[in-house]
Design a protein around this nucleic acid. Structure first.
Length: 469
RNA sequence: UCCGGCAUAGCUCAGCGGUAGAGCGGGUGGCUGUUAACCACUAGGUCGUAGGUUCGAAUCCUACUGCCGGAGCCA
């Protein structure tokens, strides 16, 4: 493809701005491409801040008024315009940057008229959400999405280094009782055909189908073949949740380990979180420093704390005792057998543990059927990892590997064995103790960046009444 | 879904019964190795939508819509 060839040649000569800014010695002549962040004019030249997304920092280009084309270019070089520049990288005469680019030739690829909504001033996150297609060009969202990308890479690295097999579990599922959560219906039926009697049998899959709320059950099947596996994919919940922590479409990491119990599960969860935080501090330090300064002062200190010490572990029963003895009056009563409320979880992580805390061994009555029943006859081997400010970031359990116990729990919760025949087969043929958990990827990005709304850590958030872009 | 709050120029907000203002951004001019640049001038709004109260509504009332915060559900 001939156009591809010229693009490739151009790409070979192009320097990313991150490289230019990090140079140890003069780079000489380079070509950069990017977007104008801001312009400051002098009588005889202009300063252009050029950003190409490779880093938070922009490159200052000095455009001399005597250069051919300057008078025609100037009115086009507004905030947001795209440019290609060749020039010489020299030590900056001014303060604030080590290097700057002396423009030799400049080409305006696309101007940005005054209707360009991103101004050179701070914008609210709410406004930026309305221009989700342009917000990645802002400092904050540039930092957030570079960090998100790096975290995604580090997740694969963590598991691959430890011999975990990555499994692509299905997005569309036909088991309409995967567990908790309202599900989105997937159908090709329209109008009257949708509501007609027996419609499901004439639908695409010949039965009701949904978007997945978890890859766990399928993940277990692969764990019972490869020993250690993980999934990392989109997940869908149709709940009408309107909070800063919930989205209808989000990404989840779900490792599943055969020959593993709840203790091993908690250990993997802790080392994963600590590994990811350390990786971000090592490889996204500039973006994190920006978040520390403009989003959440104290972020870096908190991340260092989380990465540097073992997480507290408290059994649910002990947690109830701690809450009861705290002397605090909670809006919701603290009762063994009830769910921990947000206010309870916040107390445990923010005030009692002052850091991440894993709560384990929950009452069986408030947990799904697949969790392993403990010998006390009333709790299951479940665990939730709570972090300050966000709450639950990981939920997991050891799975019930004993067929009779599993079918017993299913009938107690009114589930039909025939719907889960393949899941039960795992217990019929070569069953093993196994455990796993789900890590909400966006909640992880929130933890690492300090950004407090899930809508600001996912490129195009889907929430009730919002599926624009 | 429930509770509370908000909706005024491109953005952030003030005005809270007598029919609109600031800062920033935009435009024009000036100035300076500038860097949230600076100085001067200038153009932008049927005050979310629909009703109602009133001589008169951005301002009071009702409904609706949207957004924000908290809660539930959870990752």
């Amino acid at each position: 493809m001939s156009p591809g060839r010229s693009v490739l040649l151009a790409a070979m000569q192009r320097k990313r701005i991150k490289e230019v800014l990090a140079a140890e010695e003069p780079l000489g002549e380079v070509r950069v491409q990017g977007w104008v962040r801001t312009r400051r004019d002098s009588k005889t030249f202009s300063f252009l801040e050029i950003n190409d997304g490779s880093s938070l920092g922009s490159l200052q280009a000095v455009y001399d008024a005597s250069r051919p084309g300057y008078p025609e270019h100037l009115p086009l070089l507004q905030t947001g315009a795209s440019v290609e520049i060749t020039g010489t990288v020299v030590r900056s005469q001014g303060k604030g940057q080590s290097w700057e680019l002396q423009v030799q030739t400049l080409q305006v690829l696309g101007s940005a008229p005054e209707t360009y909504p991103l101004q050179k001033k701070r914008h609210t996150r709410e406004f930026l959400r309305e221009i989700a297609h342009l917000r990645p060009r802002s400092n904050l969202f540039g930092a957030v999405f570079r960090i998100r990308s790096r975290l995604s890479y580090a997740i694969h690295q963590f598991f691959q280094e430890r011999g975990f097999v990555h499994v692509h579990t299905p997005i569309i599922t036909a088991s309409d009782c995967e567990g908790a959560g309202e599900m989105f219906r997937v159908t090709t039926l329209e109008g009257n055909a949708f509501s007609a009697p027996g419609a499901e049998t004439r639908d695409f899959f010949g039965k009701r189908a949904f978007l997945t709320v978890s890859g766990q059950l399928e993940g277990e099947t692969f764990a019972c073949a490869f020993s250690n596996i993980y999934t990392f994919g989109p997940t869908f919940r149709a709940e009408n949740s309107n909070t800063a922590r919930h989205a209808a479409e989000f990404w989840m990491i779900e490792p599943e380990m055969a020959f593993c119990d709840l203790i091993g599960d908690m250990e993997v969860a802790e080392s994963l979180i600590q590994y990811l935080i350390r990786d971000a501090m090592d490889h996204s330090s500039e973006d994190l420093a920006f978040c520390d300064e403009f989003v959440d002062r104290g972020l870096l200190e908190r991340l260092r704390l989380i990465a540097g010490q073992p997480f507290a572990r408290i059994s649910y029963t002990d947690a109830i005792e701690i809450l009861l003895r705290s002397g605090r009056s909670f809006e919701y009563p603290v009762v063994w057998g009830h769910h921990l409320q947000t206010e309870h979880e916040r107390f445990l992580s923010e005030e009692h543990a002052k850091g991440p805390v894993t709560i384990f061994d929950y009452p069986a009555s408030i947990k799904p059927f697949y969790m392993r029943q403990n010998e006390d006859g009333r709790t299951v081997a479940a665990m939730d990892l709570l972090v300050p400010g966000i709450g639950e970031i990981i939920g997991g359990s050891q799975r019930e590997e004993r067929l009779d116990r599993l079918t017993g729990a299913m009938s107690a919760q009114g589930l039909s064995e025939s719907d889960y025949w393949w899941y039960l087969d795992l217990r019929r043929y070569g069953t093993v103790p196994h455990a796993g958990f789900g890590l909400g990827f966006e909640r992880l990005v929130m933890l690492v960046t300090g950004v407090e709304n899930i809508r600001d850590v996912i490129p195009f958030p889907r929430t009730p009444r919002n599926a624009d872009f």
